[in-house]
Nucleic acid binder design. Structure first.
Lengths: 214, 214
DNA sequence: GTCTATACTTCGATAGAC
DNA sequence: GTCTATCGAAGTATAGAC
């Protein structure tokens, strides 16, 4: 009813190519460069195909966001399966391959409602899952939730990771080595609480965490 | 030599208005909306004045970035003058009035070289000054730099602040109350080391910082 | 599904009169 | 310093033939 033009299948090969092209463009040149013409050119297709597969440009961007969310969730589930999930979460967050597109998506979400709601939805879901996982872990370690709130740990780790990814993309690394070292110390300590000095093997306990009296 | 067109004074009233308009547009609609026509319209001026005062659009954006840096530096210097500079730095970083433009500028810096170098320059300078200030403070408090590295403290605080500002702009606050509380606890503890339980008065020491054994 | 053709808008940027 | 006039390039989106 709403639109005269009516077509566009979901699992088509060219549709996927257009999304790929859009992601590349966003990373390389920024969201402003994601135009129908450029996307089509990068995908080796004609402009009109963009409008055949997507309602409009917002619809294309939305597809990019969703693909992004799905990929990240899959990685997260895989990550949790391994040993030392706490540090795995940290490393996963630190991974900066998707840092560039995250920055762009964040900026985009501020100004386009459809994008915003999807970004927010995915972010909340992801955050909750991480908190839940860490709650479980710290519980297993027998740690007091009051002293080491899982939500705080996850949030600080995520914040530091994102900032580091954003800054290193620009070539700014001032302070990060020290910050990372401090977090690592904290994680060492947390994990050490867990295996009680028996299981792991190569975990080097060292001392107390970061902010302790001298 | 390079350009035929040659004019544009630095301290003109209309020049400043154009920068104002550019900032507003960037915050409200994103950097892609900062076009010569829209900026002029928002400033109530004719399009051509944009090109009279600025070499090109990049030049305008650059002016926005510089104004931003200067403003932030001034706030920082003011901030350091007061009592409890450590917490003042934290509060200042948390301030989210400029969060929106920061997100945009960050995204922009990834793709435009002239913007990037200025953003990076300002970021590094600012970070160094903060680290220096905190080093001084923690030194006064008689704290061991190995246990509480100033660079790590500043970086984590800045990272958490930025992430929180970005997320709250979108309406995501999951985990932040807990993270903020943890940081506050840490700051309480640090400051407490400083005034030895004498000076301040209303500072409630409570206990040890965040990541301590139970 | 894909292409041709096309309408309309907005953009950056400049030349030159006043 | 500001305005009129003007380019050409690039953008979104649609209609309709094949």
């Amino acid at each position: 009813m709403t639109s005269k033009r009516r077509l566009g299948v979901e699992t088509a090969k060219n549709r996927s190519r257009l999304i790929d092209a859009a992601v590349e463009l966003m990373v390389e040149e920024g969201y402003a460069a994601v135009t129908a013409r450029k996307v089509a050119a990068k995908a080796g297709l004609k402009v009109q195909l963009v409008y055949y597969y997507f309602k409009d440009m917002d619809d294309l961007i939305l597809a990019v966001v969703k693909r992004n969310s799905v990929k990240r969730m899959k990685r997260f589930v895989r990550t949790l399966a391994g040993p030392d999930p706490l540090r795995a979460i940290w490393v996963m967050n630190r991974d900066s391959t998707s840092a560039a597109s995250t920055t762009e998506l964040l900026a985009l979400a501020n100004h386009r409602e459809t994008i915003r709601s999807e970004v927010v939805r995915a972010a909340k879901e992801f955050r909750h899952l991480q908190i839940e996982a860490v709650e479980q872990l710290l519980g297993d370690y027998g740690l007091d939730r009051e002293k080491v709130p899982p939500a705080a740990v996850v949030t600080i780790i995520a914040a530091l990771s994102r900032a580091m990814a954003q800054d290193s993309a620009l070539g700014v690394d001032e302070g990060y080595p020290e910050a990372v070292a401090l977090v690592e110390r904290g994680l060492d300590w947390l994990v050490q609480q867990g295996d009680g000095g028996a299981g792991g093997g190569d975990s080097v306990p060292r001392e107390v965490p970061g902010l302790d009296e001298s």
